[in-house]
Design a protein around this nucleic acid. Sequence first.
DNA 1: ACGATGATGAAC
DNA 2: TTCATCATCGTA
Length: 182
Amino acid sequence: MLLPQSFYNRSTLKVARDLLGCFLVRRLGGKTIKTIITETEAYHGPRDLASHASRGKTPRNEVMFGPPGIIYVYFIYGMYYMLNIVTGPRDYPAAVLIRGLTPIEEGNRFLNLAGPARLTKALSIDKSFNKLPVFTKKHGLWIEARKIEVKPSQIKRAKRIGIDYAGPYRYKKWRFILKKEG
DNA sequence: ACGATGATGAAC
DNA sequence: TTCATCATCGTA
């Protein structure tokens, strides 16, 4: 079942946590690759110095200021794409970075989906997905609700990666990791 | 520990 | 127009 747009119209931290265990699905060349979301990071509003939005709206980050459930893809380090989902109401800039996935079907076991740049490369996600909704199957990339229960003890919180410049915000435990056992 | 590799945004 | 920076990864 598709997660509705309203799912994303909540606190970034809650969305980041609740996305763990949900399914990220990619329709690619006649095949459907189904994965479980296993790691996320929250970029939480205009004051979060780790967030692209902390210095106001720019051509790159303007999608973060738009409605929830929209994909924000940006290019980084000259070679990688990062996949984010916009959260919260319009004009409140926030998003969840997808950092890790686990493939479900045996045939896709070889896919290396650990790491935000690796997963976009493996699933052929680039800037053409920027500004597209993730609550519809129309564009070949969507998110479905959990089918299994995720216990609070299975969720590990940690500091975010690669944002040491973010002052006090570098210590926020806004990274969420799904563990197999609680 | 570091280089690859180019878009981005801020300064000038 | 220039320039430092960058929500990373692979190789060492």
